[in-house]
């Protein structure tokens, strides 16, 4: 242990001992970041009628309650459907957009890129309000279609950025080579470019799934009726009756999200390792 403290931590001869304060700070920050999220996990296994920490009696009753509630099941189903469809819409659209921006030589590429990522920069509530009024006008409020469309708008910037950065380290002359060898452009893209950015595509798909699955603000405005999302119902339940079902659902959502994030990380690493 003490020997480790005296070992250099980097090329610059700084030892782990000299860096100790940095490690402690990093741990404190991580704990602060994660604790509020993790605290719901023990709460979800409580037998109490109310949210309490730490729980006095353990039980799985709130998981049972969640799984046997038609309302919660409908919301879960809606969220999963929406997230999946968002992924199917945003990923191809974003890949094509990023590719177009990368390959294009026109002058307003930069402007087009900024335009595409505005949904990420504009406050979410503004997007939600705007979408709400547009949807009310054209009559697709509270439909699955509308919700998927709105979430795709939010997911698109992520896909464009992830794919765009992958294409930056990709040698486009490979595609030219394929074309000179007899491949039409679409075929050159599918057989040469796409396989080499596949990890980025998977990462982008997972992120767009998560964008939709975790999203609450837009969902508050445009989901509901037959198509309430899980996040929307959770928010309403918190407002109306605080019972530990929320904690149980949160725990499940944390598991799903963490799992997908880990997947995205793994694919991201493979991408890095390949370069």
């Amino acid at each position: 242990m003490f020997a480790w403290l005296k070992k250099p931590a980097s090329e610059t001869q700084i030892t782990h001992g000299q860096r100790l304060w940095l490690y402690v700070l990093a741990v404190i920050i991580m704990v602060l970041l994660v604790t509020p999220t993790l605290i719901v996990i023990p709460m979800s296994f409580s037998d109490s009628q109310y949210l309490e920490f730490p729980p006095r009696v353990w039980s799985l009753r709130w998981y049972e309650h969640y799984l046997s509630s038609p309302e919660w099941m409908l919301a879960t189903w809606t969220s999963l459907k929406t997230a999946f469809l968002t992924m199917l819409v945003a990923t191809p659209a974003g890949v094509l957009a990023a590719y177009g921006l990368h390959a294009s030589q026109v002058r307003f590429v930069r402007a087009a890129f900024l335009f595409l990522i505005t949904p990420m920069m504009v406050p979410l509530v503004l997007v939600a309000i705007g979408v709400f009024y547009v949807y009310a006008q054209i009559g697709i409020l509270y439909t699955l279609f509308g919700l998927v469309l709105a979430h795709s708008i939010l997911a698109l910037p992520l896909v464009v950025i992830v794919i765009g950065s992958a294409l930056k380290s990709y040698d486009m002359s490979q595609e030219n080579a394929a074309r000179s060898l007899g491949a039409p452009r679409w075929k050159a893209f599918v057989t040469i470019t796409l396989p080499q950015i596949r990890f980025a595509v998977v990462t982008a798909a997972l992120l767009s799934f998560l964008t939709s699955f975790d999203e609450v603000v837009v969902a508050m405005f445009v989901s509901g009726g037959d198509n309430p999302t899980l996040t929307r119902n959770m928010f309403n339940a918190l407002r109306d009756q605080i019972d530990p079902t929320i904690a149980a659902i949160s725990t499940i959502m944390i598991c799903v999200t963490t799992f997908l994030m880990v997947l995205a990380q793994i694919f991201g690493q493979q991408r890095a390792a390949k370069d």
Binding site: S173, Q174, N176, A177, R179, S180, G182, A183, P184, A188
Partner: peptide, 15 residues
């Protein structure tokens, strides 16, 4: 278009 010109080409970066 390039893919119908039927010519061989090598690139600076090998590609």
């Amino acid at each position: 278009p390039p893919h119908l010109r039927d010519l061989g080409m090598t690139f600076q970066s090998y590609a």
